[in-house]
Simulated scan of single mutants.
Amino acid sequence: MLRHIVLATTAAATALPAFAEEWDVSLWGARRAFTEHVEKLAELVEEKTDGEFTLNISYGGLSNNRENLDGISIGAFEMAQFCAGYHADKNPSITVLELPFLGISTLEQEREISQALYEHPAVQEDLSRWNATLLMPSPLPQYNIVGTGEAPRTLDDYAGLAVRATGGIGRAMEEVGAVPTSMTASEVRQAMDSGVITAASFAPHAHMSFGTVENADWWTTNLNPGTVNCPVVVNTDALEALPDEYREALLSSVDEALDYYVTNYEGATMDAWGPMLDEKGIEQVTYSDEDLAAFREAVAEPAAQAWIEENAARGLPAQELYDFVTGMVEQDG
């Protein structure tokens, strides 16, 4: 919760406010590629304010990851990260970015489109119900699947496969006969070890961070059914209560934090991924262009139309949001 610590003024005082500010930040798991922009943001804010505005980052100590948006809404903490697919009903507007086969191919493109969508009035109104202001995305590459047992060498082999898959990726899995289960990242390893699921859909950093590769037998190299959208949000009241200098320090640091995140993910994370698969003897399954084209044709349009109908019924300008995103993808293409 928002705290002010009054400081003694001196003749050498700068233009910074005469109190220190501490914000609590609710993340989960452990520090990893997925959280490096938040870590970098904290570093930059502290530097810019001479240590008078600090972000106290907690990995699971403040809230369950499915409840981070709720915690933001009541001011239990000032900043948090969450994934839209964890609770699509709470943030339906941004789940458009989790539709399968949107055609987004790079982290920079994911970042650009996410940041643009976050500025859309309907999206801002949607998140305002939780007293939340979208600060920055957590760009992730296309998800692929790690699993145990016999590898699905064709799309027909997915029939009956119990797989952790959320949002649009879950819908894509249903189309090939798999049985998707939605669970948070921190629940997946136990579910795999106990046999509740036999496969999990993640980005590479999460497969490493949450241990799904430890007992894995196979990995899909190019299924690429989609990704998840996991924004960092701030409590709107806390943001508005910040002194101008602190607010500027925070907001002006977002792009640099995201630059650092993308560079780190594309470098250190992906450089480690391939060698680790080889070291663990994990079979790499690659599908034919014909199989993938059939998969996209079967999944993309029905999922998009279902999303539009469902969210138009909620009162969202769903077709407009979908056209906004796909229009940016086409423009980049």
Score class of each variant (00 low, 15 high):
75 G>Y: 02
76 A>S: 15
77 F>D: 05
78 E>M: 05
78 E>C: 05
79 M>L: 12
80 A>T: 00
80 A>G: 07
81 Q>V: 08
81 Q>E: 13
82 F>L: 12
82 F>Y: 15
82 F>K: 04
82 F>H: 11
85 G>C: 15
86 Y>Q: 14
87 H>Q: 08
88 A>F: 03
88 A>G: 06
93 S>R: 03
95 T>K: 01
95 T>R: 01
96 V>E: 05
96 V>T: 10
99 L>F: 09
100 P>K: 02
101 F>T: 02
102 L>T: 04
103 G>A: 08
105 S>G: 13
105 S>M: 14
106 T>E: 07
106 T>P: 04
107 L>D: 02
107 L>W: 04
107 L>Q: 02
108 E>D: 15
109 Q>M: 14
111 R>Y: 12
113 I>E: 04
113 I>N: 04
114 S>V: 00
114 S>A: 10
115 Q>N: 07
116 A>Q: 11
116 A>D: 14
116 A>T: 07
117 L>H: 00
119 E>V: 05
119 E>A: 13
121 P>C: 11
122 A>S: 09
123 V>D: 06
123 V>C: 07
124 Q>N: 10
125 E>W: 01
125 E>C: 00
126 D>T: 10
126 D>Y: 08
126 D>P: 07
126 D>R: 07
127 L>Y: 14
129 R>S: 09
131 N>L: 10
133 T>G: 07
134 L>I: 11
135 L>Y: 01
135 L>N: 03
135 L>D: 02
136 M>A: 02
137 P>C: 01
137 P>R: 00
139 P>Y: 00
140 L>P: 02
141 P>T: 11
142 Q>W: 08
142 Q>S: 12
142 Q>H: 11
144 N>H: 05
145 I>K: 00
146 V>R: 03
147 G>K: 06
149 G>N: 08
151 A>N: 00
152 P>I: 02
152 P>D: 07
154 T>V: 13
155 L>Q: 12
155 L>C: 10
156 D>N: 13
156 D>H: 12
156 D>M: 11
157 D>V: 05
157 D>Y: 05
159 A>W: 06
160 G>W: 03
161 L>H: 06
161 L>Q: 10
162 A>Q: 10
162 A>H: 10
163 V>A: 09
163 V>S: 07
166 T>C: 08
167 G>Y: 08
168 G>T: 08
169 I>E: 03
171 R>T: 12
171 R>E: 15
171 R>P: 05
172 A>C: 12
173 M>H: 05
174 E>V: 11
174 E>C: 07
175 E>K: 13
175 E>W: 08
175 E>A: 15
176 V>S: 06
176 V>K: 03
177 G>S: 08
178 A>S: 12
178 A>G: 10
180 P>S: 11
181 T>A: 02
183 M>W: 11
184 T>C: 01
185 A>K: 00
186 S>D: 15
187 E>M: 15
188 V>C: 15
188 V>E: 15
190 Q>E: 15
191 A>Y: 14
193 D>T: 04
194 S>A: 04
195 G>D: 14
195 G>L: 12
196 V>S: 09
196 V>I: 11
197 I>M: 03
197 I>D: 04
197 I>Y: 03
198 T>A: 13
199 A>K: 02
200 A>L: 09
201 S>G: 09
202 F>K: 02
203 A>Q: 08
203 A>T: 11
203 A>P: 06
209 S>G: 15
210 F>W: 15
210 F>L: 14
211 G>D: 02
211 G>R: 01
